[in-house]
Design a protein around this nucleic acid. Sequence first.
DNA 1: CCCCAGGCGGTTG
DNA 2: CAACCGCCTGGG
Length: 279
Amino acid sequence: MTTFAPAPAGLSIPISDDFDLEKIFECGQCFRWNPLEGGYAGVAMGRAAAIRYEDGVLRIIDSFDNDEAVWRDYFDLGRSYASVRDGLAQGNYMRCAADFGRGIRILNQERWESLCSFIISQCNNIPRIKGIVERLCEAFGDKIDFMGQTWYSFPAPDRLASLKPEDLKHIRAGYRAAYIISAARAVSSGELDLEALASADYWTALAALKGLEGVGDKVANCAILFGLRIPNAFPIDTWMKKALREHFEPGFVPEMFGDAAGLAQQYIFYYARSAGRAK
DNA sequence: CCCCAGGCGGTTG
DNA sequence: CAACCGCCTGGG
């Protein structure tokens, strides 16, 4: 410990790759970030944080230790998105989608939070998903004091495993409450090892996750892409179905994108959804 | 009132 | 196999 080096107030990380904070937080991959003063504020990895991006510099101040490595990993800064995007921009439709989604990055989110959040997402709209997730965190997460406010971490599976569906009544998750608890129990007991699955191959992870109640192809692929960080997962929801039907050959398989499939999915999804909303 | 919203699981033809 | 339907809840 040196006496002359003041503790940094926060992080300043210069970025030269694709990076658009609004697209990253609004493209539907995460549910706990909200706009604040030209940037975003929220909670990830047990840290409340305020984040902004201006003039090519990512500025972060968090409630814990401002560990640059943690946030570099979260924003996937070790991967060059510009070059992957360039490779995906083939054919008119994919070129448009990739251009439109330029700046999206796939966040490396916590495994359990990602799985649980996408269980909640099924047959639901984003404002309501965010509401349910926030109520879940307020009720069962740990308090975090930050910027004069109280924030809450995402509750660990152990915390939820002992609950009964009635205990989640006020969360207003509806029929998904039972799914949340049974998934929490599977993770908490070690029956489902998310850490191990992260180093497994895609098909192994898919089969294991689909063994959970209330987890089918869509939810499993989201958890694999965003939580297990397996890059070739390809979640197909109603928007993706429509886009694939209208703009791809009937014999399309996501494997044709290889390890860039997950990012391709994000570009297609973000593009299709924005077009659908504009109508 | 109806319908839909980033599904899943069980049943039926 | 495909098609259908109920499930909780909230918003348009």
